[in-house]
């Protein structure tokens, strides 16, 4: 999981929020299947080079929300039945990111059609099996710590 996301310093969101949301996204996308083990606070903190208390805070919230489950003695795992993101939550999240994308496109002077076309093309790329992907620049492909 370490390789799956980075902490973005220029992101206004607090680091714990970034971690929390990344984990949520990984779980929701299936990259972290139910009952899979996740790195310990210590490991993740070291891997991301962040304060363990920050990671602990994110994990706490995830545990409270039912996304992660802690089994004493065994470690931390994805919950057997992680709560699905409600349609409302998903819609809200999509709108947030969409606002960002739309603002960006607007500064380039692109029209709605152009932006939508680019979005659709990227979506199709992601859905293809890994071997077929043209763009291998995703951070998931690159190994090593952030």
């Amino acid at each position: 999981m370490n390789a799956t996301f980075r902490i973005d310093a220029s992101d206004p969101r607090p680091i714990w929020r970034q971690i929390e949301e990344s984990v949520r996204n990984l779980v929701a996308s299936g990259a972290l299947p139910p009952s899979a083990s996740v790195p310990s606070v210590r490991e993740l903190a070291r891997g991301l080079a962040v304060n363990p208390a920050t990671v602990a805070k994110a994990y706490q919230r995830l545990a409270d929300a039912g996304v992660l489950a802690v089994r004493r003695g065994d470690g931390t795992f994805v919950a057997a039945a992680p709560p699905a993101i409600t349609g409302e939550q998903r819609g809200e999240r999509l709108r947030t990111e969409a606002l960002r994308y739309a603002s960006f496109a607007a500064t380039l002077g692109a029209s709605l059609e152009e932006a939508a076309a680019a979005l659709a093309a990227t979506w199709r790329d992601l859905a293809r099996p890994p071997g077929d992907r043209e763009d291998e620049a995703g951070p998931a492909r690159k190994g090593g710590p952030t």
Partner: peptide, 10 residues
């Protein structure tokens, strides 16, 4: 309050 989380986290 992290103390509510059982031992394995930290």
């Amino acid at each position: 309050s992290v103390s509510t989380i059982a031992g394995s986290i930290s």
